[in-house]
Write a protein that binds this DNA or RNA. Sequence first.
DNA 1: TCCTGTTTTCGCCTATCAATCGAAAACGTG
DNA 2: CACGTTTTCGATTGATAGGCGAAAACAGGA
Lengths: 242, 242
Amino acid sequence: MPGTTPPLGGRHVATGHEVLAAVLQVRDGRLRVLAWQRGIAPDEGRWALPGGHLRDDEDVEESVRRQLAEKVDLSDVAHVEQLGVFSAPHRVPDARIVATAFLGLVPSDADPAVPDDTAWQPVDALPPTAFDHAAIVDDALDRLRAKLSYTNIGFALAPAEFTVSALREIYAGALGHPVSATNLQRVLTRRGQLEPTGAVSPPGPAGGRPAALFRFTRRTLRVTDAFAVLRPPGEVGRAVVP
Amino acid sequence: MPGTTPPLGGRHVATGHEVLAAVLQVRDGRLRVLAWQRGIAPDEGRWALPGGHLRDDEDVEESVRRQLAEKVDLSDVAHVEQLGVFSAPHRVPDARIVATAFLGLVPSDADPAVPDDTAWQPVDALPPTAFDHAAIVDDALDRLRAKLSYTNIGFALAPAEFTVSALREIYAGALGHPVSATNLQRVLTRRGQLEPTGAVSPPGPAGGRPAALFRFTRRTLRVTDAFAVLRPPGEVGRAVVP
DNA sequence: TCCTGTTTTCGCCTATCAATCGAAAACGTG
DNA sequence: CACGTTTTCGATTGATAGGCGAAAACAGGA
């Protein structure tokens, strides 16, 4: 179908495809994104998302996992999904690079070692970012917040076991506004996302009743049931969706 | 950041980026996809999605609109959104072509002229498809059906004005299962998606009460309200989401 | 030991909403 | 003018989200 690479226009000198990942985690109550500070021009000193060139023998999912492994322990990344393509002709200067952006989620109890130039930056107070990476972070935020309401994606932000209070803090941090613990527990339980482990967590230094521990029933993405009107008769639950 | 195009591996002879669109429409009660029959190898005779090479001076959205315009009247396409990247190394033979796939939606009353090699194929009985285009159609179906339940995306499948019965037929065709007209009307009205125009439609040949005409209140994508638990206090509605 | 402060859990109440059913309205046909 | 057809509307039932407050379970200090 297609021929060879189209001729470069204007001042383009390089062509290619890269992958980029906005890896999010709730740390001390704030939603943060993994970023590294560029040491060379262009955009020296600015903060960039992890990523790099797509190789010829891998698809974009393999590529983003390979490149993420250079910054964090991949086993700490609980969920990865494609956000979309960023392809404005001059999104990086002096080159024609199309980027596939990803959303990655890390449970709040994970603390992977990161390189010296890499840090968790708060999404509501991002330092100056490189290229169009701020727009990618925005898309990641929108996607996460939307999916928190109609999928079980919270499993990727929460530890394997947690108290309702801890989960409330995670949701509040991710959504950026206060969340009712009582209602959160009831809604997620009713949706079949949450189940008690049976164990309890010891109370904090200030005392208080020991909190029951919960876990997510599934640790793979699943969208919440739609209304019966729009659902094939007799079915419950649905497959994975972007 | 990136250098030049990485060396081609194996038997790859061409590199590039293409866009592809799965354009869906409900015709005579069935969901169909716009496809054209390839006249040349590879995959000669098989049915392919509209699309083509990404140019150097356009982003993928501009590109898909440009290429779609070669097959149908663009003004009939009520909604276009990105599905994702298809990038398996050998998804097309003897070349390394990464594809950005799109979902397009055409209202059921539109009947755009199409080229001779192009036709609306039923998605539940697709003829043999070229390359990985069947997988793209599957993704488009999943995306559409999921969004019908938590967004107002139905506006892009429905005419400007319609009866509840006509809307029921559209939803049933798109979802692939029967839908209750009464419940559909009530649910969509309650969500603020539907409003009566005041006019009525003349009854069919068999008589019957004239049906009231309705329209969608918004003709841009909007996700349905989440539960108050997960919503910033006082807000209603939310922004656009993939 | 008892009291106080803290944190979590549970139950109750209310309002809202989905789903279903059935009756009535509005039309064409014989 | 009666009958079949199609749509619309109202009433009822059942389920669930949201909010509030009481009770349970713990630590620490008097």
